[in-house]
């Protein structure tokens, strides 16, 4: 039994990979799993609430697209990690990336 989190991942991959918007039925068909459309709708509305998916309300049935590409989200995430001091509170001290070039060069010399 796939958890909601797993389903969210699969749905996002679908939306990221395809260029077009998808309806809940499309998503269910493409996932190729034995899913109820209501489950897919639940997942989609959770993703919408998280700001990852946009719903087009002009059509019936509603169609869904990803708000940003996978790469854009990755960059957003890493900016939070490597970014300015003020928004680094969320993650705990990344391990690397803070060494100055001179220090890094000195380290490499020591270890060689």
């Amino acid at each position: 039994m796939a958890t909601l989190g797993d389903l969210e991942r699969s749905v996002m991959s679908l939306l990221w990979e395809g260029d077009t918007s998808l309806s809940a039925n499309d998503v269910r068909d493409q996932l190729g799993e034995d899913l109820a459309v209501t489950t897919v709708l639940t997942v989609l509305s959770r993703l919408e609430k998280k700001g990852l998916v946009r719903r087009e309300r002009s059509t019936r049935p509603h169609r869904y697209t990803a708000t940003a590409s996978r790469e854009e989200h990755t960059v957003e995430m890493l900016n939070e990690v490597l970014g300015t001091a003020s928004d680094r509170e969320a993650v705990l001290a990344r391990f690397i990336g803070g060494v100055s070039e001179e220090e890094a060069a000195a380290l490499r010399r020591i270890l060689k």
């Binding site: 490597l82 990344r94 990336g97 060494v99």
Partner: peptide, 19 residues
């Protein structure tokens, strides 16, 4: 740690030194 002139170095230069 970043090699000189790499894209990663650019990214990490913005961060305060934790090492």
């Amino acid at each position: 740690s970043p090699e000189e002139e790499s894209k990663e170095a650019e990214l990490s230069r913005h961060s305060s030194a934790l090492i």
